[in-house]
Write a protein that binds this DNA or RNA. Structure first.
Length: 127
RNA sequence: UGAGUUUGCCAGGCAGUCGCUUCGUUAAACGAAGAGGAAAGUCCGGGCUCCGAAGAGCAGAGUGCCAGGUAAUACCUGGGGGGCGUGAGCCUACGGAAAGUGCAGCAGAAAGUGUACCGCCAGCCUGGUAAGUUCAGGAAGGUAAGGGUGAAAAGGUGCGGUAAGAGCGCACCGCGCGACUGGUAACAGCUCGUGGCGAUGGUAAACCCCACUCGGAGCAAGACCAAAUAGAAAUCUAAUAGUGCGGCUCGUGCUGGAUUUGGGUAGGUUGCUUGAGCCUGUUGGUGACGACUGGCCUAGAUGAAUGACUGUCCAUGACAGAACCCGGCUUAUCGGCAAACUCUUUCU
RNA sequence: GGCGCGAUAGCAAAGCGGUUAUGCACUGGAUUGCAAAUCCACGUAGGCCGGUUCGACUCCGGCUCGCGCCU
């Protein structure tokens, strides 16, 4: 189900090739982090990607966000935010972790915080 | 009008844009489907899978008025007993204490083959007195009516009776036992007989007894593919033996087994959704539920899919997210709707 | 997802159907020239809600929170 969407210009898709899938993908990022960016409720780990695109992985721990509904909401919001901004990203593997208290934030607050993180990430990635 | 009881249902809708998962058609696009009443807690019960088969006994655990429903249950329905409420209704671990063992702090005379602290009592002895039926004291008794303690003190009321009292006797009520009647039964009775009732106190969510039920583990079960383990060394032991069957024994399977050393792996597919399934109608039953006919296919992910934005309408949206699947229970929950019924106020 | 365990004072940690030990810490006193050590004394407890019982920290249910194991 590869459909090679790289050439179609404004790419707002979110197929499986833009995600971290296996445990080895995650441990590769954790073993060699290039730099990290944190805000009040999120932490982003960044590593140069072996593929030709940027990939996202999410870690929303049950310890930090207790209810399954809120964990799912955070995952959807961060995927949505990543999807809309992905076209402008350089090729990096990203792992987004939720910190304690993230589950009680509203949708708007989370979206703003994520966009702040993406901006900082792009600035650091240039250097 | 107000207050309430029970049962059932709904859980934001519609349109557009950009995305996600599965399936299908065709050849990169289109179409279809896509979380809950609790998906939750994992408290019960099953299916399914493995443990050779799932057998017997012991241990252990659970359930506990009766009858029925069901695949099964600790659930549900109907009925009985007890309690609460003016009522509609609600609650109810509700077998056995005359098989045995234990427990009851403090208080109290006494807490279990019952007891005599205060009190009451004729007679006896002593004192007082002229004397005594009166008064005071004493010893040995009688007594369970009265007082006091406690959560609990062993039938109740009335009359008789007595030195004082007492089921000591009687009547009514209560209780036990046995009949009879009604009911499938639990149980009930303005029924009959019988027992004076210190027989037989309480506690079994104390041990226990009785009846019934339960083999263990869980989809991270299990199966397949690829790769790897394979292999080796040392020690011990062998048919009245060793070991597996996840408490033990019987029973039964296997023949080499057990332990240690060192070395090494953890990716994919499947199980995975057609099921004690849902809907309509007819019908049996007081009901839970059952039978028959017709129709429908309704999530299946695996770093894990339902979202974001915009517009609009309303009641302004609570609790909350499937992970093998069902039946219940429990807990969380903004509100709204419908039906039946009860009480209250006023009017007729 | 499944299975199991626990909650007692500021901290640690026992036992039990009948007023919850003990140690460290805290506070006060004694001792000392002052302190430490030592001695004496004081106060502070059953996660929450129900049920059984005369009486529950204990027995039985239901919630809440924490921890461990299976990959």
């Amino acid at each position: 189900m590869r459909n090679s969407p790289d050439e179609l210009t404004p790419d707002f898709r979110f197929p499986k090739s833009t995600r971290l899938l296996t445990a080895t993908d995650y441990s590769d990022v954790f073993d060699a982090v290039d730099f990290r960016i944190s805000s009040h409720h999120f932490l982003l780990l960044v590593k140069q990607s072996p593929t030709d695109r940027s990939r996202l992985g999410l870690i929303i721990a049950k310890k930090h966000v207790k209810l399954a509904v809120q964990r799912n909401r955070l995952k959807r919001l961060s995927r949505e935010s990543f999807r809309t901004n992905n076209a402008t990203f350089p090729n990096f593997d990203l792992v987004l972790l939720a910190k304690k208290g993230a589950g009680t934030r509203s949708n708007n607050q989370c979206v703003k915080e994520l966009e702040f993180i993406w901006r900082k990430f792009k600035n650091r990635a240039k250097t």
